[in-house]
Structures are given as structure tokens and as C-alpha cells.
Amino acid sequence: MTSKLISAATCAALALVLTTATTPAKAAGESLKPPSQYWSFSGPFGRYDQAQLRRGFQVFREVCASCHGLKYIAFRNLGEPGGLEFTEDEVKAIAAEYTVQDGPNADGEMFERPAKPADRWPPPFENDVVGALANNGVAPPDASLLAKARAAERGFPSFVIDMFTTHQEAGVDYIYALLTGYEDEPPEGVEIADGLSYNPYFLGGNAIAMVPPLFDEAVEYEDGTAPTIDNYARDVAAFMMWAAEPKLEQRKFIGVWAFLYLAILGALLYLIKKKIWRRVGH
């Protein structure tokens, strides 16, 4: 009996460890835990909401892109299936709005030309030092991987449940919480250095170098979605998830079939195994 109990306990503990291991432990008294949001792309059957991605892209272009790069995204990616799915002409038109450096030309000089679909997103600053000088001493991180590179600790018991619900949205939850979580005045007793802003969700302490980027009606949506900070944050977070994981839809599509296939194959193999072993009296 004892060993049964212990084994049950160890199994539970194993699950616990498997999961704690993956999330950074929270240092004492740091940032607030971002609440879970609804995302259309969560779960095995999750898909991106194309209209949301396009809105998020609009917010990114009009607000974020002045400081944040998107270096792993090429303009052609904007036309790819399982993403924003702009037409070829739309992609060309968007690319042409940006200039990229090319060259050297016949005179041996680098020159600027309008971007083509095959070009990657041009960087907002020449280098990180310039970026840091323009932004309170901190270079704005590139946005193409942020949705996977940032996550607050999920904590118990969420991380155990996450294994069964396939929760992979800690990054977007964090981005949404950060963008909507700015507070005008830091709470009593908290000193914020000049130029920094107070944000209780910020993982690197509560003083963030990014000034509140969004405000109501900053971006004019064409599809009638309410022009609120909340919608902007949600849409741009979804867009950043796509930028970090552009193959998510293909992955989940193949995954559902692969899972189904293995389940059926496993069942058939079990029947064969049973049938064969029936020959052995035991």
C-alpha cells in the first residue's frame, strides 16, 4: 500500500518538476503576474484571426515600428498562408513604402531603394547604440521574437494545467499586460528614475524605459473595431505572436492529423499485440 501511495505521489511530483523546470522562478516581490487572455490561436485547434493580425500590423507600423525592428520578417511573409495573407500586389505596395540599403552600385557606393517583397524589414536604428541613445538609454528590442522570448512565471497550479491545455500564450499575455498596465503615478514609496515609466508587469523591475506607447484613438481602424488601448494592445500582441511563430497554423494543422494518426495506429498495434500474446498462455 505504502509503495502505491508513494508512487502516486512521485508521479504527481514528477509532473510538477517537469513543469517548474521550464518557467523561471520568480524573484521575491517583483512584477505582477499577467492575467490569461483569450487568444484565437490557443489550443490544438487554434488559428490566427486574420483581421486581428492585420489590425495588429497596422498598430505595429504606425506606433511600434518607429523604435522596434522586425528583422526576421521579410515583406513576402506578409503574403504567406496562415498569416496576414495580403495579395502579391498589396505586399509589393507595402514593401515600396519602405526603403532599404542596397549596393554597392557601379560607383562603389551604397544606395537606398524602395524595398521589394524579398527584402527584410529595415531596422529602425542604424545600430543598438543609436537606438539606446534615442530611447532613455535602452535599445528597444527587436519585435520579431518577443512573443516567445518574454514570459512571466506561470506559477502553481497553472503550469501543470498548461500541459493539458497546451497553453503557450504566456508571451502574448505578458505583452498585452505590459501595454495596458502603465500607471501614471508609481505607488507610495516607489522611486522611478527620470525618463522611465512605472509598469507593474515589467519583468526587469517596475521601471521601464519605454514610454506608454498607446493611447485611445492613436490608430484609426478601418473595420470599425473600437479604437481603444485595450484593442490595440490585444491586436499588436497577436501580430507579434504571428511574427514570432509564422508557421503556427501549419504546425497545429499537421499536429491534429499526426495525433489522430498515432492514436489509431496505436490502437491497431494494441489489438495485434493482444492477438499475438494470446498464443502464449499467461
Binding site: 494518426y261 489509431i264 495506429l265 491497431l268 489489438l271 495485434i272 492477438k275
Partner: peptide, 16 residues
Amino acid sequence: RRDVLYLSTAVLGAAG
């Protein structure tokens, strides 16, 4: 029945 089982599993496995 056994033949059908073996055959279908083999076909499914090969396809996979």
C-alpha cells in the same frame, strides 16, 4: 479478421 488487422496496420504504418 487477423489478416485484415495485420494488413490495415501495415498499410497505415507504411503510409505514416
